[in-house]
Amino acid sequence: MNLTSCPCGSGLQYVNCCQPYHLKTKIAPTAEALMRSRYSAFVVANADYLYDTTHFSKRGGNSKSAYLSSAKNTKWVKLEIVSSTFDVVEFKAYYLNKKFQPEVLHEKSNFKLEDGKWYYVDGEFY
């Protein structure tokens, strides 16, 4: 996929932002960086990255095919980071539903740093 600006909203080019994480040439250094890269992975339908960055204890309910289906069936519009701490990121992800009506996914996500890598654990929806 050839993107210019990164879908995560950082203002950087995709090749200098989330793409290196998706290609596994870099590791997301913070929970927020992982959150942003996961959002971008939904935009570009990178199910492998979404699965690999989900904590192993939570992978049972999140198959690669489920991630791929979710990514391909949603038109993601914008990511807004509401707040970010060491291991919790609250965000709003704006998207269009199947009827092309705007909706917002508002979540406070929990992340875990393990062996030098960040993983998504779970989240609380608002």
Rank of each mutant, 00 (worst) to 15 (best):
P20Q: 12
F42G: 00
Y49I: 01
R59L: 04
A66Y: 13
K75E: 12
S57H: 10
T74N: 08
E32H: 02
A33P: 03
A71T: 04
A31S: 08
S40P: 06
P29V: 04
T53P: 00
Y49L: 00
S40N: 11
R59S: 11
S63L: 04
S69M: 14
S63F: 07
Y39L: 01
K78T: 08
D48Q: 11
L23I: 01
L79I: 06
T54R: 01
K64A: 05
R36Y: 06
S69T: 12
K26I: 00
I27E: 08
A47E: 08
S65A: 13
S65Q: 15
Y51P: 00
T74A: 10
A33W: 06
L50N: 04
F42D: 00
Y51N: 05
F56E: 15
F42Y: 14
A45Q: 09
N62A: 08
S69Y: 15
Y39T: 00
Y51G: 04
S83G: 09
I81T: 10
W76K: 02
S37A: 11
S65D: 15
V44D: 01
T30I: 04
K78R: 14
K26R: 15
V82P: 11
V82G: 11
L23F: 05
N73H: 14
V77L: 13
P29I: 03
P20S: 10
N62E: 11
M35C: 12
T74W: 14
L68F: 12
S83A: 15
P20L: 03
K58Q: 14
A71G: 07
S69R: 15
P29F: 09
A71P: 03
P20K: 12
L34R: 00
A41V: 03
R59Y: 14
A33Y: 09
A71L: 06
I27N: 06
V82K: 13
T54F: 12
N62S: 11
S40Y: 12
K72S: 10
S37M: 01
K26Q: 15
S69A: 15
V43W: 12
D52C: 07
R38P: 02
T74H: 13
V82I: 15
Y39F: 14
T74I: 09
E32C: 06
S83N: 12
S63N: 10
S40K: 07
S37V: 00
S65L: 09
T30E: 10
T25D: 08
